[in-house]
Amino acid sequence: MKDRFSSFHPIVNFVYFAAVLLFGMVFMHPILQTASLASALLYSIMLNGKKAVTFNVLYMLPLLLVTAVLNPLFNHAGVTILFYLKNGNPITLESIAYGVSAACMFVTVIIWFSCYNAVMTSDKFIYLFGKIMPALSLIFSMVLRFVPRYIAQLKVISNAQKCIGRDVSQGSILARARNGMTILSIMTTWALENAIETADSMKSRGYGLPGRTSFSLFRFDNRDKLVFLLMLGLIAVILTGAVLGENTMRFFPSIKVPDKSLLSFTVYMAYLGLGLLPVIINVLEEVKWKRIESRM
């Protein structure tokens, strides 16, 4: 399935990820964390399919368990003591709960990043930062252009060297290491010497003239505006909740979750809405298509 959220303006994408990542790192509240983790999981599977499922089960689940177990071993605060370790340190309910919560937070952030990597491609990032940091974003763009070229060239050089018996796959370990470095060294010369022409090409096309602008294919259209405003609204609700202390809970010395109220319920809904925003967009688009197809 093709992700529709990726086709929105980079600002929309970026603000979304900045918000979910930031909130994911800051809010320690069972309901909010569950909402965030669930949306991250759902979206990552939507984006990366099977790969995401294996990633989440194979790496994220063990990571979650290990981090959750580690915390109580180091942290002995809390009033509800469950039992004592051999070395005399207590294991407390609070520290277990805190461990689970912290682990959850960490895993959620990692999964959000896996979504971020799929959506925020390099060109979007370069576009966003091209306005404020034109020179650096041009460097990023050039590096992104050079790296695949250099990797291909490493292969070419390695083949050429192989034919005179100097490849990493040939000779003793020491000879191999030396040959590997020789290849890197040849590549460096080649890269530097050829880069002079790149600099010429940039100068020739007027790079360095004052008043450089930054062009992109992205356009902020009405659809972007709508989603952006919606997103800002949700963020505002969540921040209100944060200011009023609805979004965090107390672990030590004893566990205390903020009281449920209409406001807290609104905040939970807003948080879930924000997290699921791309998923909802994808589903709506899918439904629309199904309807169009059935009419055709």
Partner: peptide, 24 residues
Amino acid sequence: FEKRKPQARELIVIAVLAAIAVAG
């Protein structure tokens, strides 16, 4: 770096070296 309007060749050298590091 942005403020001093770096020249093409400075950008190139930084980009080339960074790319070599990444390729490496």
